[in-house]
C-alpha cells in the first residue's frame, strides 16, 4: 500500500515536470491557430497565422533568412565533414604526444563558451579585415562544427580492425584505393553522424552568427532574424505559426530517430542473448 502510494507520487512528480517543460511549446502551438499575439481566441479558430508566413510584408526577409541558414549550413557542414574525417584519420596515426596536443585543441571549441569563441573570431576577422558576410560566417561555422566530426569519426577508427586495411594493401591495392574502397566504407557511420551533427549545430547556432554577421551586410539567418524582429516588437502571429512548425518538425524527427535507435539496440541485445 505504502509502496503503491510512493510509486504514484513519483510518477505524478515526473508528469508535473514534463508538463511544465512542454507547456510553453503546447501553448504556442494552440494559439498559433488564433492569429493573435496575446493568447486569446477573439478571432476564433483560424489558419490566418500560417497563411501570413507567405503573405506578410516580412515574408521576403523571412524566406531570405531561411535560405541563408540552409546555404551556410550546407557549405560549412560539407567542409567540416571532409576536413574532420581526414583530420581524424591523420590524428589516429599520430604519435602519442602530438596526438594529445591536437585532441586538446580539438576539445577547445566544444568546452569553450560560445560567446568567447564568437568575440575572439570577431576580433580576428576585424583585425585581418576579412570581408563581411558569408565568408566570416562559413569560417566560424566550420570552426565550431569540425571538432564534432573528428569526435564522431575517431571512435570508428579506434574500433576498426587494422588488419583489413593491411590485407587490402597486401592484396595489391594502392594506399589511395585501399582508403576509398576499404577504410571509408568502414567509418561511414561516423562520417554520417558527424555530418548530421554539424548540419544541426549550424542551423541551430545563434550566438556566433549574431556576433560575426557584421552590421553592414544585412545577412540574417533564421535565428538572428527572429532575434532582430521579435526583440523589438514582440511576437507577431506569424511567428507562432513558424515556431509551431519548427517544434513539430524537430520533435518528430528526434523522437522517431531515437525510438528507432533504442529498438535496434534492444533487438541487438536479444540476438546477443540468443547466441
Amino acid at each position: 500500500m505504502v509502496k503503491k502510494l510512493k510509486n504514484f507520487c513519483e510518477k505524478s512528480y515526473l508528469l508535473i515536470i514534463l508538463a511544465i517543460l512542454y507547456a510553453p511549446i503546447l501553448l504556442i502551438i494552440v494559439y498559433s491557430f488564433s492569429n493573435s499575439s496575446n493568447f486569446n481566441f477573439s478571432e476564433g479558430f483560424t489558419f490566418e497565422a500560417y497563411v501570413s508566413i507567405f503573405t506578410s510584408e516580412k515574408s521576403p526577409a523571412l524566406w531570405d533568412a531561411v535560405k541563408n541558414t540552409l546555404i551556410i549550413a550546407c557549405i560549412s557542414s560539407v567542409f567540416a565533414t571532409v576536413m574532420g574525417t581526414f583530420a581524424a584519420i591523420g590524428i589516429h596515426s599520430m604519435g602519442r604526444r602530438s596526438r594529445r596536443i591536437v585532441e586538446n585543441v580539438n576539445q577547445f571549441p566544444i568546452i569553450n563558451s560560445e560567446i568567447v569563441m564568437a568575440v575572439s573570431l570577431m576580433i580576428f576577422f576585424v583585425t585581418f579585415a576579412f570581408p563581411e558576410g558569408y565568408l566570416r560566417l562559413v569560417i566560424a561555422h566550420i570552426a565550431f562544427c569540425t571538432p564534432y566530426v573528428v569526435l564522431s569519426v575517431l571512435p570508428k577508427l579506434e574500433s576498426m580492425d587494422p588488419n583489413v586495411y593491411e590485407a587490402a594493401l597486401d592484396l595489391g591495392a594502392n594506399p589511395f584505393k585501399a582508403l576509398v574502397k576499404v577504410l571509408f566504407p568502414m567509418i561511414t557511420p561516423g562520417i554520417v553522424s558527424g555530418f548530421v551533427l554539424s548540419f544541426t549545430l549550424s542551423i541551430d547556432d545563434f550566438i556566433i552568427t549574431q556576433i560575426n554577421k557584421g552590421a553592414s551586410t544585412g545577412i540574417n539567418t533564421l535565428s538572428t532574424y527572429i532575434y532582430s524582429d521579435a526583440r523589438v516588437q514582440g511576437l507577431e502571429p506569424f511567428w507562432y505559426a513558424i515556431f509551431s512548425i519548427i517544434f513539430v518538425v524537430v520533435l518528430a524527427i528526434l523522437l522517431t530517430a531515437n525510438l528507432y535507435k533504442i529498438r535496434k539496440q534492444k533487438q541487438a541485445q536479444k540476438e546477443g542473448k540468443a547466441i
Partner: peptide, 21 residues
C-alpha cells in the same frame, strides 16, 4: 593506418581560427 599529413589542413585551420583568435 595512414599518413598523419591528412590532419595538417585541420591543424592549420584550428591554429588560425581557434588558437590565434
Amino acid at each position: 593506418i595512414t599518413k598523419r599529413v591528412f590532419s595538417y589542413p585541420y591543424v592549420l585551420f584550428m591554429l588560425l581560427f581557434v588558437v590565434l583568435p
